[in-house]
Amino acid sequence: MQYPDAPDLTSSPLSRILLDPSQIDRMIRRMAHEILERNQGVRDLYLIGILKGGGILAERLASIICAIEGASVPLGTVDITLYRDDLSSKPSPPFLKKSALPEPVDLKRVVLVDDVLFTGRSVRSAMDLLMDLGRPSRVQLAVLIDRGHRELPIRADFVGKNLPTSRDETVQVSLETGQEHVSLHRKG
């Protein structure tokens, strides 16, 4: 099926497509099964996507988990901007996006969801935010791509794909329906 606004998916010396929609779909399905296996079902499970990359991924995971178990899991999103450690290195901070948390995190087994794990700083911010929201019984981390280069002692519990990268490359993940791809870009 062709989409009129589909991205240019042809590889060039500066960018490479690494994953296509069916590969991404299989990875997300496997991650959903792993989350259920590790947590022995949906009891107290709470998926929270880190905006904005983790939002759609968390949604996808939640709907697959619901299809497997026949029971829905609460699904939230958080904007971590206020907790970032690099706010003061930029001239002006961005407008905030609305976090949506349908229920309190207390005593829940929270799975933080993000698209790419890189330095680990976003995850640090998200954990600080979670602790200010309440006291989850457990916090786990699910990421679609782990590209290495950690700057903090943080590790993901569920990983779609480990992707060796160099620091000056950027990983682009799109989970918009019809435009799903993961690509690697090098600075020209």
Binding site: D79, P93, L96, K97, K98, D128, M131, D132, L133
Partner: peptide, 16 residues
Amino acid sequence: DSFLDLSSRTVKKVPS
């Protein structure tokens, strides 16, 4: 809108 949500939280402060 995001800041108004703070008033319903356990910790009502953010570190920004």
